[in-house]
């Protein structure tokens, strides 16, 4: 490998950086195409002529508002419960910690419909916990917007917990020790040192959690049902529309896609500038 002449040195170690091996590039391109093509399909088949009118349809706006508000609420609930859970997993030693960690990831791997069934069995009006909620407080969860949030928290919180736990494990604990030598107790260390330092990790986890909640379908339809205006979120509305009016489904899909991309882009900008 002496002179840098192009197209010379076909040996196994020659000119490695200049040439990209097609064995990798070809599948990569196919993969990329596979991911992008459906989105292109949406754009191509969208009923652009009637788009303006369809978008401001009150049914679309209702479903959109329900989706955004429930997934945001689910993210807030996940933050309040998930960050302390992540902290416990990352920073404390207790018997069965590994088992708990494995259990936290269960909702990631089970089919959401199964999650919905499980939620119904526990929180339904005759469920293990639900019957007491009803007889003591007169509360019925299933088929309410609150049930949508519950279903979303169930499937989306693990994303947040895993992300925040990773951030906590990656954080330099010496800063916490430094704060302790300055007189900070454990709670102060957590709120004034740990939390600010893992904020990017929490942000990333929250975004994943929010996106997962926004797209939630299986657990929602099983546990919360499919009532327009109360529990019919965008994904459910898309599915229903697909049955009778595929063009409406395309419009709903595009709206959902656009809104989620806009939210993610805005949040990303926010964090990059901080």
């Amino acid at each position: 490998m002496t002179a840098p002449t192009p197209r010379v040195g076909r040996g196994p170690s020659g000119n490695g950086t200049a040439r990209v091996p097609w064995v990798l590039v070809l599948p990569a391109l196919i993969g990329l195409l596979f991911l992008l093509l459906p989105l292109v399909g949406l754009l191509v088949r969208a009923p652009w002529a009637t788009m303006g009118r369809r978008i401001v349809d009150p049914d679309v706006l209702t479903a959109l508002w329900l989706s955004l508000s429930t997934s945001t609420a689910a993210t807030l609930v996940s933050l309040v419960l998930g960050v302390p859970l992540a902290w416990s997993l990352a920073r404390t030693e207790f018997p069965g910690r590994r088992l708990v960690r494995a259990l936290v990831t269960v909702p990631l791997v089970i089919p959401p419909v199964v999650g919905g069934v499980a939620l119904l069995l526990v929180l339904g009006r005759n469920g293990i916990v639900g019957q007491y909620l009803y007889s003591w407080f007169g509360l019925t969860l299933p088929f309410t917007p609150a049930a949508v949030v519950v279903a979303q928290v169930f499937v989306a919180m693990p994303f947040l917990v895993i992300g925040v736990e990773g951030a906590l494990r990656g954080a330099d604990r010496r800063y916490e020790e430094a704060a302790a030598t300055l007189g900070a107790g454990r709670v102060t260390v957590f709120t004034r040192v740990t939390l600010p330092m893992i904020l990017p990790g929490i942000g990333a986890g929250a975004v994943l959690c929010w996106a997962r909640a926004l797209g939630e379908f299986g657990a929602t339809i099983t546990f919360a049902g499919n009532f327009p205006g109360t529990t019919q979120t965008m994904p459910l509305a898309v599915y229903m529309a697909m049955q009778r009016d595929p063009e409406a489904a395309i419009v709903l899909s595009l709206v959902l896609l656009l809104v989620s991309l806009a939210v993610l882009a805005t949040l990303r900008e926010r964090w990059m500038s901080v």
């Binding site: 010496r174 020790e177 302790a180 030598t181 107790g185």
Partner: peptide
């Protein structure tokens, strides 16, 4: 406990809180 000791520490990399 650490937080109650009248001890001041200057750490090797100073560990000033970055935020």
């Amino acid at each position: 406990a650490v937080e109650h000791r009248p001890v001041g520490v200057v750490f090797q990399d100073y560990l000033l809180l970055p935020h």
